[in-house]
Amino acid sequence: MSLEALLQKALEEGYLLFTPIDNGKNNALVARGDSAKITPIPESFNYSAAKAFSKITRLGKLGNKALVVLKPCEERALRELVKLKQADLENVITVGYDCLGFKNGEEMRPACSTCSYPFPLSTDIAYIRVGGEGIKANTDSGKTLLTELGFLKDVKIDEKAREKFLEEKWKNRKKMEDEFKGQFNGYETLSESLEDCMNCHNCMAVCPVCYCQECYFDSKAFDYEPYRYEKAVEKRGVLSVPRDKFLFHLGRLAHMSTLCVGCGLCEDACPKDIELTKLFKIVSERVQKQFDYLPGSDKELPLSTYREDEFTDLG
């Protein structure tokens, strides 16, 4: 009983699908099964399904019931977007799967090889591929749907195998951290690692949790009069233009580090192949740890809330 079969059956029963098609070249809303090549687990990772789905449900919820296929990182990003009122999951059954990672050319994407959450977090339905094989329901609505479509089955899960799978990832993750210390550590290495940046802002454009339609760092606040440039260069001797190249990266990091899911699309989109995964994923995870926050979980957005008795050494 494959995932494709489940999705086809759902289509027949009148559900809409939101799923990768054409082996990942696009994410699509599908109404009829014969109109497209449905590839729920694609070969390439092009665009975040979370970002794409939020375009559909930003202004309201779906009228029709639907199934949405999400990689674990996309699921987590989508839950954050729901918290930010940029997507709506009503009438939606979420379908996740154990993600084995994606390749860029020959190599596995760095974000995938070091992924800490390759298994679905809390989707209604999960397709088990590690330590077992089969489709299981995680929630009541998932169970109802599987029963309705005739796909409800018991799936045996080998937790040890799953542990081992995760351990591999953590090992890679540790290695990435060590590399990080050499690349983004201190003034010198930081400026070296980011100096190739060409200010295209692609990283922001593809990031699923960068939800602003117009970025602050693109706004008029950074539109300086000529005399401001002249004054600055008088003080500094030389001034790279556009200014605030680094402020864009660090500022964006400050704005979304609590939400980053570590999907690595920023690095995929970068025309200069700057290792942004390392920068964003590792710093973000450390920030999230301070607030005991996991993007995709039920917890409240860390910067919208506070406790009176925390961080008492500050101040």
């Binding site: 939800y211 602003c212 117009e214 602050y216 606040a221 950074f222 539109d223 300086y224 401001r228 704005h255």
Partner: peptide, 20 residues
């Protein structure tokens, strides 16, 4: 400060020019 892209603000250029 809750707004990531300064969609609400006191002054358009505001703080950036103050810091400069």
């Amino acid at each position: 400060t809750a707004c990531a892209n300064n969609a609400c603000y006191f002054d358009d250029k505001g703080m950036i020019s103050m810091i400069d």
